[in-house]
Design a protein around this nucleic acid. Structure first.
Lengths: 336, 336
DNA sequence: TTGTAGGCGTTATCAT
DNA sequence: ATGATAACGCCTACAA
């Protein structure tokens, strides 16, 4: 696709002619293959330089049967979470000489299946981030688009590489922290009902309740954005809880903003925690207590697992990444 | 790359055999080309369905001479600005049937040139976001990788599609706003010296000074991140200015966080403004006065211009997008 | 309307 | 060590 001065792309044939050798030799030089007479190799290199020859990746792909490209499909490119995962995959894949083709399904589960199959036609592998599609479609995609790695959607299938954040554990850390501060009545400001990661958080709450029967945890459905958090204040305060577990940091920060408007002192009257540890969490007022989630690592590990499968080194088991508690100023002792 | 049950990818030949027709006919049916006998077309479609045939995009690309893919190169995938641009390009390009290959040069100007040429080999076009490379390299890339669109780097070259944010105008809006509140001594917390957009902001300051000779604007070099803003408090306060213009919202919010720790009342003692209107600007304490920048539109317009050139409809002139003032709570009258 | 054959640019096999 | 030649999978004149 890169053209010379004439406008017509310069091909391997042009170089061969210029250097007075065969295409095969040019190819060998370009790929550093086999042993080529140094003098001839030099002649070829000069011709390459002279003509500004760049091999066609498309032709190479066709001949080699691989594109050295991996597709990453996310539900929403605007979500900081998926941006981080995308960055992780991009950087990790680059280390192995792979490029990334990005697809954004814009939160329309119906489009995911086709988008996945479609993306896969041009790439050697696929990373599926938090797919929203149904179980049946997902299985079909996993079969049709293999090799595929799945991020943040716990699935049963054994042979497919997958890496997920252990939100159940994350919630456990937060509940323990709050309990340690004396809180006994909590409220969970939940995320999208269809989200697999929201389900995991719910399991974390269940586990916490099982451990501490004296605990009360109300659950309200809020959403996943700053706006959702902002709008949830009344609902959250209505429960009378002394601490709120937000679905994520965005919700927590949105809520914090509204609480300040309402003159609800945090953490004196209400403790607030989030999940993710996005960069802003440290800079809010008050700074947000949260669980640090290695988002970019999710992408990195997804690629590593995928690459392992592509090399034929067998399928690794599901990988669960754990978070760590970041105690900041938004949590404090339960009000007397 | 999608394989049938046998493991071997199913090709157009397999379908032709199955449907008892020639490859050409299968191709025609797949592309809805020409007029094919309905009965035969149906036979082909059944064969396609039966064999789960998916044409090889690679082979199509080689034959057609285009990939229907555009590369987007950004200095840093972690920067919210570039994420928005990427999203804009991805969505706009998708409407025209194009996919996006993303590249992250990780803020290493030396890597940009090769990355650009490299990315372009697999794609039909290239979007260069705020390239950090030198003028010479840039011109070389523009020539070698055409068609290229450039975002947020004002360049002289006339024929290349480019769209940039008019930061000069943005700064003008902010200065006028502050002047209207009575401020006469401002400080600019500047961004990276090599950044073209930082230079534009400087021009905005110059223009404002030209309009209002009674104004004093100190300039300090701060950076572009939350951390940079946080760390700049002493430097900023040291100037004695009554209002600070931050390079962007990140810097402004980081500064806000630190000012709160220092018990410097905003806006009572110091007014603070940013640039970008990132989602958080609305939710900080106090909410940040800033200029709304249509970041995603930058990406959308870049694609539109690029696509126009690719269609041979001629090169559009440079496009400058303008921001709009968002007055919030972080600015107020100059202290008595 | 359908089929035949050549070409897209590269790599890889096999002679030489 | 080098050069023909045949893939790779698809599209598209051109011929029938």
């Amino acid at each position: 696709m890169v053209s010379g001065d004439a406008g017509r792309p310069v091909t391997i044939d042009d170089v061969a002619t210029q250097a007075q050798v065969s295409r095969a030799t040019v190819s060998r030089v370009m790929n550093g293959l086999a042993t080529v007479d140094p003098a001839i190799a030099e002649r070829v290199r000069r011709a390459v330089e002279l003509l500004q020859y760049r091999p066609s990746e498309t032709a190479r792909s066709l001949s080699l049967g691989r594109t050295n490209t991996v597709a990453v499909l996310v539900p929403d490119l605007a979500n900081p979470m998926f941006q981080s995962i995308l960055r992780g995959v991009t950087r990790a894949a680059a280390e192995d000489g792979f490029r990334v083709l990005v697809g954004d399904t814009q939160e329309t589960p119906d489009a995911e299946r086709d988008a996945a199959i479609q993306a896969r036609r041009r790439c050697d592998a696929l990373v599926l981030c938090a797919p929203r599609m149904g179980e049946t479609d997902l299985e079909a995609v996993l079969a049709a688009a293999s090799p595929v790695a799945v991020v943040n959607r716990g699935i049963e299938a054994g042979a497919v590489p997958q890496v997920s954040m252990d939100y159940e554990q994350a919630i456990g850390l937060l509940v323990e922290h709050l309990v340690g501060l004396g809180h006994r009545h909590l409220v969970y400001a939940g995320g999208p009902p269809t989200s697999a990661s929201n389900r995991l958080r719910g399991l974390g709450l269940d586990a916490a309740l099982a451990r501490r029967p004296d605990l009360r945890i109300d659950r309200v459905s809020v959403g996943s954005t700053l706006e959702d958090g902002f709008a949830s204040a009344a609902q959250v305060l209505g429960t009378g809880a002394s601490a709120v577990l937000a679905f994520n940091d965005l919700v927590a920060l949105g809520l914090l903003s509204r609480l300040r408007e309402l003159d609800v002192a945090v953490p004196e009257r209400l403790s607030v925690v989030g999940v993710d540890d996005i960069p802003f969490a440290r800079f809010s007022t008050p700074a947000l207590t949260t669980v640090h989630v290695p988002q970019e690592a999710l992408g990195v590990q997804a690629w590593r697992q995928l690459h392992q499968v592509m090399r034929g080194d067998g399928a690794p088991g599901p990988l669960w990444l754990e978070g760590s508690l970041e105690v900041r100023a938004s949590t404090g002792p339960v009000p007397a």
